[in-house]
Design a protein around this nucleic acid. Structure first.
Lengths: 333, 333
DNA sequence: CTGTTAGCGCGTTCAT
DNA sequence: ATGAACGCGCTAACAG
């Protein structure tokens, strides 16, 4: 690998001048610029990004923490982030937090030790206090899918309350009155918000929510299986089931069929997130769109703009959920 | 951020000694080691990985190229790789090649410019010649899901021929005789191998393959839809359909239902890869396991062993496919 | 076992 | 507009 020094020698100029043309900086006469450029060309010179980083105190890398690398949720986000960053010559360092507080902290520490210029965090377990504390350390970071008031311009999130509202409303508008609900873990903010939206729609329609039709799930497939089983084991009957995410909806579907129910005629099911396999399910799952891709892109743009001083115009923080209509929601006649 | 120099001062030792204890290297007396350690502790010292890289000519980063970050296939692989690397203090830089020759080359160039110590490549479009050429540049890399004879110890791949054989054999053993097949793109090596295995099973069973029951797909869902449509539009009838991957199987399932067919009684379907949503399909898709997770782990281990000199015992290059039994393959009576 | 010293490749003042 | 020189934080001989 040729160094900047060899280039300067070949071009008959100083090291500083080469550095200038490499960085497109300041003023260099066209003539010397050409000399340098052709020297670079013939030597196949490629700047050593590590040396650049050391000298400039910029690693040009941004760390990404997601709860899982696999699964159907984060791929789209990472994809958007990577694309956006690479277009600006930055790179993404990824790591997983496994939705565990300790592991998330370790992941963040790891990324920090890598001297990332910024962090894009999709945390699930870490506390707001930890993040606010992290903020004091002058390490730029953004948060995906969670809103912290003090850091709101750096949070990119779905309006989960509205999402819950839309889902419930769609079900109600299809004529359902007896509606069961499998929530997410009570501790999780998005689960609470979705439930709140759910209640708002019920209030608005003048339908009473029955506690017996409300069970807590774990956001996993198994939670849907068990949730439906629990619901079926009490006396209250229902014609529709809202699941706080698609995984649970999937589990509920299997269990429903296991119980010999016809879908969606005997039971309508609606999910949340519109993960990749939702359209592959049978019947196709009607669900609420969770625009992770766009959120990822926005997060990357925030970093580009605020950390790397790129000119970027529009950055959107709050995202609106949309109903994705497929076949799992039937109309009651 | 404290530097190694400040630590050396605080501990009253030389810079080199601090470096030694940081790297757990050579011999340092327990007493001075303790002094240094406590100095590091009280200063909150964290080595600057970039400076380490510059001096040691090791970036401690390995580049990963996959065709897509999203989708259900690579998440598991990346997950395994990241986990394995992080345990050794290395990090993963990811990028996507989008199954396009030019973009794959750009991706590789990008990773190289990042001074990765090694590359883990899941390429789809780039030629063997390109990779062999790349190999001459002394940049260590491994290849996932593709075998190149000259580089075979650094290739981690599924025995695709065997996979095709197992799938066809399973179908045949279920009593099917009229079996249709939607292949992958004729250009792709894995598609050819799977087809070859398919033929072997037919030969072994003394069943003739009918050209009219063989159509080429594109590995995408739509390819399954169109493939089945084409198959249905010719006179030859069939009771089972083998799809060269799960995405196409999914498409074929939708189309079959669209045509009013009962699954699996009127049409058995089997896929390849066992991607994440296969178990969510209805009926659950019987398919062939593609151990990408393990391959990812092995690839990472190869790098750890051969690039970072970690002691690692077993590394497996060739992987055997296994039948994953679910409900989409019915028995002909 | 420990310290000195010379790079690693580049960015960035400061002069000129 | 260009060059000289120093520093980024650390590793790696080489001495001692």
């Amino acid at each position: 690998m040729a160094t900047i020094y060899e280039v300067s020698e070949a071009a008959g100029v100083s090291l500083a001048t080469v550095s200038r043309v490499v960085n497109g900086n300041s003023n260099v006469s066209q003539k010397t610029r050409d000399k340098v450029l052709s020297a670079m060309e013939s030597l196949g010179y490629q700047p050593n990004t590590i040396a650049q980083s050391l000298a400039s105190k910029r690693s040009n890398s941004v760390g990404i923490l997601v709860s899982e690398l696999h699964g159907s949720f984060f791929g789209n986000m990472m994809s958007a982030v990577e694309l956006e960053l690479r277009e600006s010559g930055k790179h993404a360092i990824i790591t997983a937090g496994h939705a565990d507080e300790e592991k998330e902290k370790q992941g963040i520490e790891f990324l920090l030790s890598r001297r990332c210029d910024a962090l894009i965090l999709h945390v699930e377990a870490v506390s707001d206090e930890y993040l606010i504390e992290l903020d004091k350390k002058k390490i730029p970071f953004v948060i995906i899918n969670h809103k912290i008031e003090q850091l709101s311009d750096r949070c990119f999130y779905l309006d989960n309350e509205e999402a819950g509202y839309i889902a419930a409303k769609a079900v109600i508008e299809h004529g359902h009155k007896d509606i069961a609900y499998i929530t997410g873990p009570a501790l999780k903010e998005d689960a609470q918000l979705r439930l709140a939206g759910h209640k708002r729609a019920f209030d608005e329609a003048g339908i009473a929510m029955k506690d017996s039709l409300l069970v807590e799930g774990d956001y996993k497939q198994e939670g849907g299986v068990e949730g439906l089983r629990t619901l079926l084991n009490q006396k209250e009957s229902f014609t529709a089931l809202i699941c706080a995410n698609d995984e649970m909806a999937s589990g509920a579907m299997s269990e429903a069929r296991e119980q010999g129910m016809e879908l969606p005629s005997e039971l309508s099911i609606i999910g949340f997130d519109d993960v990749i396999f939702s359209e592959y399910m049978y019947p196709g799952l009607t669900t609420i769109n969770n625009p992770v891709t766009t959120m990822g892109r926005m997060a990357a743009r925030w970093v580009l703009k605020n950390v790397y001083d790129k000119k970027i115009s529009e950055i959107q923080n709050k995202f609106d959920p949309k109903l994705v209509v497929r076949d799992s929601l039937a109309t009651i006649v």
